[in-house]
């Protein structure tokens, strides 16, 4: 199983994602440079957190034009696993690989804190190691993480079951008070219709070892790694 971690100028979660892939999960790691269109045979491509190109215009607005993004689009079309985390989610929305947009937090402030997430789909390659409707704990760290989509898009997402993670309280109740950024429908992460492109604002790579305050994040990495094994075996 080979994970690719994309590095744009201004990306900073690349090293954290790389650390978890390499040191915690023990999978193969390949950094992918933004100027390089070659995905080097990776099975899953991670677009990590950061401020790609400084995000001065609009989050993800410049990154979508990077040479690596064209290859990632084709890779996704072929059914390859693409996983956008934080800034990566923003970039996937800008690139049109996922619907909707991430706008300024309703508090108008950056927020770095722990949240609880309801896992609404466990039949995906990204979540198969989670249990049915499991509540997991994961930190967020963003200024523009409020999920927004047109009403029609939103209802289509809900009808298709494309909402993968929703902010909830520790007991699993999806409440406005558990929503850290004003996301519509408490959405923290969504998947494309085909089920191979995931975007999420919380940071699984920051909670994959107990000494960092929690290890729920590693379940997602292990899900991907385990699924690829299955694919290889079959």
């Amino acid at each position: 199983m080979k994970f690719g971690v994309v590095v744009f100028p201004g990306t900073w979660s690349d090293r954290d994602c790389g650390w978890v892939v390499d040191q915690v999960v023990g999978a193969q790691l390949q950094y992918l440079w933004h100027k390089d269109a070659d995905l080097k045979g990776c099975d899953c491509v991670i677009l990590p957190g950061g401020f790609a190109y400084g995000d001065y215009l609009r989050t993800g607005a410049i990154a979508r034009f990077a040479p690596v993004m064209e290859s990632i689009g084709e890779f996704a079309d072929r059914g390859g696993l693409v996983w956008g985390i934080c800034n990566g989610f923003q970039i996937l929305c800008e690139a049109g690989l996922l619907p909707g947009a991430l706008i300024r937090n309703s508090s108008l402030e950056f927020r770095c804190e722990w949240t609880h997430l309801m896992v609404e789909r466990k039949d995906l390659p990204f979540t198969s190691a989670c249990s049915e409707r499991e509540v997991i704990r994961m930190p967020i760290s963003h200024g523009e993480g409020s999920y927004f989509a047109e009403p029609a898009v939103l209802s289509r997402l809900e009808q298709n079951g494309q909402v993968v993670f929703r902010y909830c309280d520790p007991g699993g109740r999806v409440l406005p008070s558990a929503n850290p950024n004003g996301s519509l429908h408490n959405i923290a992460g969504i998947i494309n219709k085909r089920g191979n492109v995931l975007g999420m604002m919380p940071h699984p790579e920051r909670c994959s070892e107990p000494e960092l305050g929690g290890a729920d994040g590693v379940k997602l990495f292990r899900s991907v790694a385990g699924n690829a094994m299955k694919v290889l075996v079959s």
């Binding site: 090293r15 760290s141 940071h203 920051r206 960092l212």
Partner: peptide
């Protein structure tokens, strides 16, 4: 104040 600062990036903060 500190929830407005990213205090976790780097995967090293064991006492926040």
């Amino acid at each position: 104040i500190f929830r407005r600062y990213d205090h976790m990036v780097g995967d090293s903060t064991v006492v926040p």
